[in-house]
Simulated scan of single mutants.
Amino acid sequence: MKILVIEDDRRIGGFLERGLVAEGYQVTLEPDGRDGLDRLRNDAFDLVILDRMLPYIDGLEICRLIREERFPVLILMLTAKDSLQDKIDGLKGGADDYLTKPFAFDELLARIIAMRRRGPGQDERSLLRVGTLTLDSESRRVTRNGDPISLTVREFELLRYLMINADRVVSRERLLNGVWEYGFDPGTKIVDVYVRYLRQKIDSAEGPSLIQTVRGIGYMISATPAAAT
């Protein structure tokens, strides 16, 4: 996922860039509205994290221009303006979500994940494949080698999240945020338990598991066998 951060506060911008890159996102940082809008017009992004108060072009105006020019991006408005009217103005201007400063980084990640579920580009992810495993988000049908697999709602969401991030390691924290919408670790090993459930349902007895354990980090789904899981 490619993210454009338009933020004039260097400390906040650097914090966002480092944190999002560590989570596996591709991040471009621009320090003002003019450069941010130019970058958006010349490159493709999935999400714009947009400060409300920016030099040269206000964040709300950028938001309106993005929608007028029909860029297929999600917009998360990030600002110190926290009145109800400010939030209404931002959402009416075209923002998909609104987060006020100061904010917790885990909440920011959870908002991004929630926006991806419902935002532009979702149709492109309706049919996911990893090897012989397929998942159809619209029909909620899962098959392997053409054979249907019955999953619970939570198992389906966990599998879908892993398949969207196929061949990339996903931390337990991201899975908790993205699937259970927890901003904290409840200490119940719920991710590990559900991964075990999934393995029992999607893997055959003969072959290696599609869901690979990356010790100390989390999980990855891949059709390429790992050296050790």
Rank of each mutant, 00 (worst) to 15 (best):
D192N: 10
A228N: 09
I62L: 05
L210H: 02
I88N: 05
L74W: 02
L151K: 05
D8G: 07
A95Q: 09
K87L: 03
T152V: 04
L133N: 02
L210P: 02
I190M: 13
T79A: 02
V195R: 08
D43I: 03
V153W: 12
R118T: 15
V191M: 00
G131A: 05
T224C: 00
L135S: 10
R140N: 10
D97N: 10
D86S: 14
R41M: 07
D147T: 09
L40V: 11
K2S: 07
L210M: 10
A110T: 12
A22T: 11
P31I: 05
D136V: 08
Y197N: 12
I217A: 09
D106F: 08
T28E: 14
E17A: 11
Y98H: 02
I66G: 01
A95M: 09
D147Q: 12
L40E: 05
W180C: 05
E157L: 13
V191G: 01
F71Y: 15
D167R: 10
R140D: 06
A110V: 07
L54D: 13
L91F: 04
R144V: 13
R141Y: 11
D82L: 00
T143P: 03
G146V: 00
D43K: 11
L40K: 10
E124P: 00
E206I: 09
T28K: 14
F71Q: 12
L74F: 00
D9H: 11
G36W: 06
N145C: 03
R39L: 02
Y161G: 01
G36H: 10
F156G: 14
I217D: 03
T28A: 15
L151E: 02
P31D: 07
S204T: 15
F105R: 10
R144L: 08
D123T: 09
M53Y: 04
P55W: 06
A223S: 10
P102V: 06
I66C: 03
I75D: 02
L76S: 08
V142L: 12
E206F: 11
T229H: 10
N145Y: 07
I211H: 08
K201T: 15
V214N: 12
Q85S: 13
V195A: 05
G13R: 10
V195K: 08
R125I: 04
M163H: 06
K201M: 14
D192Y: 04
R125V: 05
V191P: 02
I202A: 13
D185T: 09
R174G: 06
D46T: 14
Q200W: 11
V170M: 04
S171D: 04
Q200T: 14
I6L: 01
R52Y: 01
E23M: 08
G119F: 06
G13Y: 08
K92Y: 01
E17T: 13
S209H: 14
V27S: 11
P102K: 07
D123G: 00
I88V: 15
P186R: 04
L50D: 05
G146T: 01
T143N: 11
Y56V: 10
D123E: 13
A205E: 12
Y98A: 01
P186D: 13
S171F: 05
L158W: 02
R196V: 06
E155T: 14
I66F: 04
I62E: 01
A95L: 08
I6W: 00
D46M: 10
L108C: 08
D147A: 13
T79R: 01
I3E: 01
N145E: 12
G19D: 08
L50Y: 11
R129C: 12
L65E: 10
S139L: 15
F45G: 11
E69C: 04
T152K: 13
D167F: 04
S137L: 11
V191H: 02
